[in-house]
Design a protein around this nucleic acid. Structure first.
Lengths: 242, 242
DNA sequence: TCGGCGCTTTGATGTCGATCAACTTTGACG
DNA sequence: CGTCAAAGTTGATCGACATCAAAGCGCCGA
């Protein structure tokens, strides 16, 4: 293990020292001692876009923290229609506690760094430390709020409003380190047009047309299909409908 | 208070004795002692359809359990468009822990019985008893699963599939006492056509037409606009698309 | 440098659900 | 009962987004 031997207050496992999840994520609920215990059983990994992290009806043996990149959560209908039901950014927690089966697909849409723990270790720690469960409840409540916001987008917004809402969501979440930008910003789209369509309940053609319109109206600029420059966040917000 | 004086194992507050929430709900996580403490500060109330329980951006001073009836959770866009983002049946917990403001409207759609507690009492009890927080996490995770299921319905299903999915949802949840029915069943719609439309992201006309079609195809019968007889749950399921 | 392949854009046409406009049913109250 | 308002149904038309089809445009390997 890559930790120092002496018991000391600043004795944070090397693995965790520069970790996003130790601040905003669930690990923030753990003290150094617990962090040590968990880090012994945990491992870091890097995966490429398109890597399936959890199959649709698959038993999951581990939980993870997203340390960088974006993970899409998907649900499918029997005839192949798909809906993305959530995006996980760093330092989000990935996994469905208290359930063996997942009902959800999870797939990296960009390069993703993960820190994974065995299910059992997390669940044991949750029993011992109410703080961890509290933290998890907080994140789950936040995800529920997000999901409900998105239900409004899916159910009641026009195609134009949907695409604007999507861009705003990305602009506000893509960079885990800095707070949401205020006026002008720039980022790489973490999703293909097909993924954006599956997230918004649209087709790729409609997504493309709406992006073109935003570009024509001078709200955004797009370079190389992926890189977006938001000229005016304020004007983008106006197009979200809410 | 309406409790007996002697400390005894079967010493359950009268208020709680015949209560749904003591079994499936959050109160199931409390021992008799805690139940007593909480019931001292809690009160039961009956409200009529249309009663606003929580305003859209209102500070909430209490949590509640739904003991009977149906509550709709709504979100609105600035121009008046509305989306119902969830339905709460007995014995669901109503309220958003750890947040003063709600961002959500809550309104009774049928006659509703509630058991309400002051926010502070619940939060104090949550600190003392990890079981309660655990229970709340469980319900929140279940609600998140439901919300994500509904995102698929909103984003990817046709009008016909949406209406069928709605009827199935009601059939499975309207009666808190019995388990989901298997073949034939009957219930009163807890929502008006306008509410159904807001739940499904459709218009009332489209909802009406789809109900008419289900009736014409012999899948359901409707009496007095509200009472639904599902002739074949199996055939209804086939029309949900998943 | 050149194909070739995947992703994206753009255009023409089609369709499902929205909108607009009667009309009917239900239920509350005299 | 008869009246009235609210809720629901039905029909005609419209429009937003889907579908079908054909280019563009990187980007990679030979």
């Amino acid at each position: 293990m890559t930790t120092r031997k002496d018991i000391h207050n600043s004795d944070i496992p090397v693995l965790c020292q520069s970790c996003e999840a130790r601040h905003g994520g669930v690990c923030a609920a753990l003290d150094n001692h617990q962090l040590q215990a968990l880090s012994k059983a945990s491992w870091k990994r890097k995966v490429e876009p398109g890597t399936e992290l959890v199959g649709d009806a698959e038993a999951v043996g581990s939980y993870s923290n997203v340390l960088s990149g974006v993970v899409k959560l998907t649900k499918g209908l029997s005839d192949g229609r798909q809906q993305i039901v959530g995006l996980q950014f760093a330092p989000d927690f990935l996994g469905r506690p208290f359930k063996v089966e997942s009902r959800l697909g999870a797939e990296a849409t960009t390069d993703v760094t993960l820190c994974s723990f065995p299910k059992a270790a997390v669940e044991r720690m949750m029993k011992e430390s109410p703080g961890l469960e509290h933290r998890l409840l907080q994140q789950t409540l936040a995800e529920l709020d997000d999901a409900r916001d998105w239900m409004v987008t899916l159910g009641r917004k026009t195609a134009g409003e949907k695409v604007a809402s999507f861009l705003l969501l990305i602009a506000r979440n893509i960079d885990p380190a800095s707070p949401p930008p205020a006026e002008k910003t720039t980022f790489d789209l973490p999703l293909t047009r097909a993924d954006i369509a599956d997230f918004l309940g649209l087709t790729i053609e409609t997504v493309s047309r709406q992006l073109t319109k935003l570009r024509a109206d001078g709200v955004i600029t797009i370079e190389n299909n992926r890189h977006v420059i938001v000229e005016s966040l304020e004007r983008l917000e106006l197009r979200c409908g809410d």
